[in-house]
Write a protein that binds this DNA or RNA. Structure first.
Lengths: 337, 337
DNA sequence: ATGAAAGCGCTAACAA
DNA sequence: TTGTTAGCGCTTTCAT
């Protein structure tokens, strides 16, 4: 209804209105509103403007501003799976915090991996004059870059495309694998199994390399019988229980938390206790699981938040330029080791 | 560089460029680009324009367009927890699909529940002239509406504020509770426990009401010993195992999937099989858990996607106006019943 | 059927 | 210190 129509639909208050009310020109209003340094404004003109601003409930029109400035304050973020895991959400969160910090706002589009939607999303962003685009995936992988992405500055987040010439920000899988293994090593384990994923991926090779590196650094010979493969979900971990046990490991590094969850079930069926009989470490730090298993799972976190934040930093040129920026995966200690 | 500087940084192609190239006026270009009905354009002028468009790689400037039209094509979505659960992601997904369908794009802001951030987010959206705002929470609850939200059209998604006058779209908890119970009833169970949450909430009361309604409809007397309380997480379900067993139930409806997961553990420790000895149904349909427990969990889904979609529909006035729109929670059958 | 021109709300020289 | 003015890219009457 009516009354204080604070800016609502009914014709917005513009700078002109403020100028009129304050008895100054729009240029003056612009200057005080934006706190332009190098603009000498009389104390009292400034005051009058400020008063008029609150009085009228003036709110700058960001669109008009970017139009006249030429450069926009948008950063586009296209994600392939906002809806299915919390991972993309963390990337968004990190990207947004960092973007805001620099006066940018995020335009996000969820494509669920559909190339047509992806194209629409990029087009939409381009039409909105985004400063650049963050193209992200929910799990670390190599991608082929959609052609349209080359029409603006883009940085790949949690994915990469080797000779695309596009900068990428990804988790440091190798360091992560090494960290996970070291958790077990530190607890005194010498015979450590690695339940790796069956899926070829940077995670598969990187974590394995990290596992080997940790072993080597600890002076333990690599034993190929200790690395086994499992589908990267609960079922995989559960099904692998017998083999894991068969190789005589006292600690097992699981490719991810879900596999660890499955393994928990398997171990329990064998009457084994965690960590007394077998120590387990996961990967991902997927909260719903890791923090609430019995016992709570020690794991290594995927730095999604940081990935998003670093992504905008490289987009904005705030990060020393490199082809691929690797972000560390920190250990999260709970009670399974 | 051969002429294909497709848009990139270097001065974007504008309508003027297209007009010049096609030998027509910008007005004409505008008309053909927007396919304006009621604009008589000569067959061949139209063709020349279209050619020039692709030739130059013209891309409309959405910001300039909204500025001149007055109305923007943005819908703001503020969420309190994109980063922690996949729930918010599904709301975003639904909202975005529906928004796009109507030519709108989503401006999303993640506040992680921080009121200051929330305020900034709304301000930012207002400055971007959003058509309206969807204010969403990751779990269904009553909220107090941030003052700023009244400055534009807003609809509450997955939350409500009784006398705020704002329309709300929420899951139909009661129907959901009834559905869950009916799954057990249909499998022949007569003595059904309800492991409700300890947290006062629409879910707590709504699902309980649904449980009672289902029982009543089946001609089964309500027995208060059958409803027990548990913290809404794995630990809660696990800890409640003994009491649940003590009341002689053959089927149990858990307040959510996480509780069900904990109960699985407890039941297993008692040497009980699911569903042979005890049938279990959850709520939420949280994929990481429900689909991968052993046996996979039958549950009731929270309609997050639909919540988001319906939210934009009511915002756009495409839905018959009601104070609160309740969205159904469908049963998801797996193997725990 | 097509074009000229006046805005949309704001910024940025440049004057005054 | 402050005001004038010319755009930014596009839409939209209103002429022609």
């Amino acid at each position: 209804m009516n009354g204080t129509d604070h800016g609502r639909q009914g014709h917005a208050v513009t700078m002109r209105d403020v100028a009129k009310a304050a008895g100054v020109s729009v240029a003056t209003v612009s200057h005080v509103v934006n706190n332009k340094s190098g603009a000498r404004i009389g104390e009292d003109a400034r005051r009058r403007v400020q008063e008029a601003v609150v009085e009228l409930g003036y709110r700058p029109n960001a669109l008009a501003k970017t139009l006249s400035q030429g450069s926009s304050r948008f950063i586009g973020l296209v994600a392939d799976a906002i809806a299915t895991t919390p991972f993309a959400g963390q990337i968004i969160h990190g990207a947004q915090d960092e973007a805001w910090k620099h006066g940018y706002v995020l335009l996000v589009a969820n494509t669920e991996g559909n190339p047509a939607v992806e194209n629409d999303a990029v087009t939409m962003m381009l039409e909105h004059q985004v400063r650049g685009i963050l193209y992200s995936t929910w799990y670390h992988r190599e991608i082929v870059v959609p052609e349209t992405l080359h029409q603006t500055d883009t940085v790949l987040v949690n994915c990469f495309a080797d000779d695309s010439g596009l900068p990428a920000v990804v988790p440091d899988e190798q360091q992560g694998g090494r960290t996970a293994t070291e958790e077990l090593l530190a607890a005194g384990h010498r015979r450590i199994a690695f339940l790796n994923t069956t899926t070829p991926s940077p995670a598969q090779t990187g974590r394995l390399a990290g596992y080997r590196a940790a072993l080597e650094a600890a002076g333990i010979a690599f034993d190929e019988h200790l690395v086994q493969l499992a589908e990267p979900a609960q079922e995989g971990g559960y099904d692998a229980t017998a083999q894991v046990l068969a190789c005589g490991a006292t600690g097992v590094f699981c490719h991810n938390d879900r596999v660890a969850m499955g393994l928990y079930d398997g171990l329990r069926e064998h009457g084994l206790r965690i960590p007394e009989d077998v120590a387990v470490v996961g990967f991902d730090n997927q909260d719903v699981i890791a923090a609430h298993l019995r016992p709570p799972l020690s794991t290594v976190a995927l730095p999604h938040y940081e990935l998003g934040a670093a992504g905008v930093r490289v987009l904005l040129g705030l990060e020393p330029p490199v082809d691929v920026l690797r972000i560390a995966c920190p250990a999260i200690r709970r009670q399974s080791v």
